[in-house]
Amino acid sequence: MSFESAVSPEVRANVDEQAKAFATASPFRHLVIDDFLDRGFVDQLLREFPAFERGNYFGEDGRPGGKSTVDSMPQLGEAYRRLDEVIQTPAFLDYVGRITGIDDLLYDPFYLGGGTHENRHGQPLSAHIDFNYHPSERWHRRLNLIVYLNHEWDESWGGMLDLYRDPYEEPRPTVRVAPLFNRCVIFETTETSWHGFDKIQLPEDRPDLSRKSIALYFYTKERPVEEIAGRHTTHYVNRQMPEHIVAGRVLSDDDVAELRALVAARDVQLRMLYEENGKLLQAQDKGFGGHLLYLMKRLYIRYRRRTAA
């Protein structure tokens, strides 16, 4: 399948306007494109979308959760095999590069962190910036491209793609994007491209609904020096205290449930951080380097004791 047959002709004809919109967008460079893919093609992608149980639906805490991902895209069916072929063509990479002003883009054949994403009722995604280097290659992560596959979506259901200026300082997103069918969102990944989505709250009479999308990540071998940072994993910011929780308010059952969820989310994050810290300390203790570090620490502590006496 070619780039020309996959992406709708109306979209391909508006590259200059798309580039201007991307360059001037706030709170960071991004672009929303409706009717992105050929209609027959995107319909087939939805038909071949994998069942929730086929993907990885275990959270970072190791427990089953409300999000399922599949990164083996070419094995999902004919449409996904063709999508995999298209996004690595020079024509597609050049098109995205012209919009974003980023040359020499690389597609990720491993789909690490990407692929199909499905999120069920009750699932949020905390504001975050993404990991900044490819996990196995020395590539800089530069762009996210997401295509949504939801025929129905109402803002009241949550799950809106939220773009933040700084979630530590401004808990309200600057931009909200509904995850509507065949809508594409392209945004840069930098140390300030904070994004996430609010908790999905679907109608009780529609248990069949979920939030479906395809996430594609693009890289380069180099990036501007002023944008380079030390390697890091995804950096999450837990939701702030709801603005309606104020002194004198009588808490409702929903308020109490929300506060408990916030505390639980922080507990999970703290437990994960302590576990990661423990693994790092244990790794330091192993081997010759670990033993040498132990001896140096021992000498330093004995020296401090002598000088303190």
Rank of each mutant, 00 (worst) to 15 (best):
E4I: 11
S5P: 01
A6T: 12
P9S: 14
R12F: 10
A13Q: 11
E17T: 14
A23H: 05
I33F: 07
I33A: 07
D35H: 14
F36L: 03
L45D: 05
E53G: 01
R63A: 12
G65T: 09
S68N: 03
T69G: 13
D71T: 13
D71W: 07
P74N: 09
G77E: 05
A79T: 04
Y80D: 00
R81Y: 05
R82F: 05
D84T: 14
Q88F: 08
Q88G: 09
A91R: 11
G97P: 06
R98F: 07
D104Y: 12
D108W: 04
L112F: 08
G115H: 05
H121F: 04
Q123F: 00
A127V: 00
A127D: 02
A127Q: 05
I129P: 02
Y133P: 02
Y133A: 09
L143Y: 05
Y148F: 14
L149S: 04
E152V: 04
D154F: 09
S156T: 14
L163S: 07
E169G: 03
E170D: 13
V175Q: 13
V185H: 00
V185L: 12
E188C: 06
T189A: 15
E204I: 06
E204Q: 09
D205K: 06
D205Y: 07
R206V: 00
R206H: 08
D208A: 08
R211H: 04
K212L: 10
I214N: 01
L216Y: 07
L216A: 01
L216K: 01
R223W: 15
V225M: 09
I228A: 02
A229R: 15
H235I: 12
R239T: 10
Q240Y: 08
Q240C: 04
H244D: 05
I245P: 01
S252W: 04
D255H: 09
A257P: 00
E258G: 13
R260A: 10
L262A: 12
V263D: 07
V263F: 10
V263S: 11
D267P: 00
E276Y: 14
K279T: 09
Q282I: 02
Q282T: 04
Q282F: 09
D285P: 00
L292E: 12
Y294R: 12
R298N: 11
I301H: 14
I301P: 00
I301T: 14
Y303L: 10
A308C: 05
A308N: 09
